[in-house]
Simulated assay, not measured.
Amino acid sequence: MRDVLKGIKVVDLTQIGAGPTCTMLLGDFGAEVVKVEPLSGDIGRALGPPWYSDQSPIHIGFNRGKKSIAVDLKQEEGAALVRRLADQADILVESFRPGTLDKFGLGPAQLEQDHPGLIYCSVSGYGQTGPFAFHPGVDGIMQAASGLMGLIGTAESGPMKVQAPIVDVFTGYVAALGCMTALIERSKTGKGRHIDASLFGSAVALQQSAVTAYLGDPVQPAKLGSAAPYSAPNEAYPTADGWIMIAAYMVKHWPRFCSVIGRPDLTDDIRFANSADRVVNRLELFAQVAAAMKTRTTDEWLPLLEAQDILCSRVAGYEDVIAHEQTQFSRLIATMEHSSLGSLKTPGNPVNARQMNAAPFAPPPLLGEHTRSILADLGLDAGSIDDLLKRAIVSADAGR
């Protein structure tokens, strides 16, 4: 599948997380991705600590397999170069505020006039139209605005967020899906499409079941920590040395679970007669189960639970995740060889992961690493390229 988009050219005018995730995925499937960066580089290059050697994990994690050209869009000659790149592209992905690229002749309506087959994908905070279209947004802001932050934590905790930029990444997948769908449509109609992917919309979609529940019964969900609002037991319990997440709410699993933890009497307790009763009396149930779970270590409990087909997992740290047998078997961690950092590892592509990640990917580019070769492909000779470099229209400097 790594060559399914071979021959497709992508111009990437995005920064930080969501847009770069989209274009990285397109590159994983074989598209040629040209990352157009300002002379100072994608903002994501400077985000840290922590650092991956001397570079940001934001840049390393979201930009494998791309080529980089550094261009000053604010100068007309720089904008003209990017318009030439767009003329040769199948897909352009951008993450500016709506209307910003119109100033440089790179708006969707402007490019469509000369390139009606171009798929133009805009990634933004709230979308391209509507009352909040011009409001900026990043992952944490969207976790708050979408209600996601309101689900996380406990009644005693303050607002909490998912530390991994989950909204950025999911929006990148949404945008990539839109681009792929538009490619299929174009193969039938010959026409491009403007894809509008917003962090806000994606964050709301992440909460499909929770928002659906609210629409059916408009009560703000309680902050339940690791518990599920619709079933019990379905949360993390403390052990003698850690935590185990347990989902034993199904009819056949509940009595088995009670037997394993040495509390078969819980099945006769009217408060816990069925899953709905256990949800209502979750705090009482938690106290009973937690007391039993604390009598053994995580490693002692896991085989006992698994022997009875109880759904469970240790609450893992990244050391556990990287060493996990399934991580290793499925090749969920991809490798790359970087010119200055040597061997790099990041999460790979999750689609058919064992096959997709079997061979190393091309590394994320240094800033302006491919400026000269990209301009040469546009037909510029060495003298013209040197002149652009001298006048700081473009940059070929490598590094963070």
Score class of each variant (00 low, 15 high):
Pro165Arg: 11
Pro165Leu: 10
Met149Asn: 04
Ala164Ser: 14
Gln163Lys: 10
Leu148His: 11
Met160Glu: 04
Asp139Arg: 11
Glu156Cys: 00
Ala176Met: 04
Ala144Glu: 06
Gly150Tyr: 03
Ala176Asp: 03
Gly137Arg: 07
Tyr173Cys: 09
Val174Ile: 05
Tyr173Ala: 05
Val162Ile: 15
Ile141Asn: 14
Leu148Trp: 12
Ile141Phe: 11
Pro165Met: 08
Val174Lys: 03
Gly150Trp: 02
Ile141Arg: 07
Gln143Tyr: 11
Gln143Gly: 08
Phe170Lys: 06
Asp168Ile: 01
Glu156Gly: 08
Ser157Asn: 06
Ser157Met: 04
Gly140Cys: 11
Asp139Phe: 12
Pro136Asn: 09
Ala144Val: 10
Val138Thr: 15
Lys161Asp: 00
Val174Ala: 01
Val169Phe: 15
Ala145Val: 14
Gly137Ala: 14
Ser157Arg: 03
Ala164Lys: 07
Leu148Met: 15
Met142His: 10
Leu148Arg: 10
Ala144Arg: 02
Ala155Tyr: 02
Asp139Gly: 11
Gly150Leu: 04
Asp168Lys: 02
Leu151Trp: 08
Pro159Thr: 00
Gly147Trp: 10
Tyr173Glu: 07
Gly158Ala: 10
Gly137Cys: 12
Leu148Tyr: 11
Leu151Glu: 08
Ala155His: 05
Ala164Pro: 09
Pro165Asp: 11
Val162Gln: 03
Ala164Arg: 10
Ser157Ala: 03
Lys161Leu: 15
Pro136Ala: 15
Ile152Gln: 13
Ser157Ile: 01
Gly147Pro: 13
Ile152His: 05
Ile152Pro: 05
Leu151Cys: 12
Met142Glu: 11
Pro165Phe: 10
Met142Gln: 14
Val162Met: 07
Met160Gln: 14
Ala155Arg: 07
Met142Trp: 05
Pro136Val: 13
Leu177Asn: 07
Thr171Phe: 04
Val162Glu: 03
Gly137Met: 13
Ile141Gly: 09
Met149Ala: 13
Thr154Tyr: 06
Gly153Gln: 03
Asp168Leu: 03
Pro165His: 12
Ala164Trp: 11
Val169Tyr: 14
Gly147Ser: 13
Val169Cys: 12
Phe170Asp: 01
Ile152Met: 13
Gly137Lys: 05
Pro159Tyr: 05
Pro136Thr: 14
Ile152Ala: 06
Ala155Met: 04
Gly172Pro: 00
Leu177Glu: 08
Gly137Asp: 10
Ile152Asp: 01
Val167Asp: 02
Ala145Asn: 09
Ala175Met: 02
Met160Ile: 11
Ala145His: 15
Ala176Lys: 01
Gly147Phe: 11
Ala175Tyr: 03
Gly140Thr: 14
Thr154Trp: 04
Met149Trp: 01
Ala155Glu: 14
Gly153Cys: 00
Ser146Arg: 07
Asp139Pro: 05
Thr154Gln: 00
Met160Pro: 01
Tyr173Ile: 14
Gly158Asp: 07
Gly140Glu: 14
Thr171Gln: 06
Leu177Ile: 08
Gly172Ile: 02
Ala145Glu: 14
Gly153Met: 02
Ile141Lys: 10
Thr171Lys: 07
Glu156Ala: 13
Gly137Val: 05
Pro136Leu: 12
Ala155Val: 05
Met149Arg: 05
Gly178Pro: 03
Gly178Phe: 02
Thr154Ile: 00
Gly147Val: 10
Val162Gly: 04
Ala155Asn: 01
Ala164Asn: 13
Pro159Ile: 01
Gly178Tyr: 00
Gly137Phe: 09
Val167Ser: 06
Gly153Asp: 03
Thr154Asn: 01
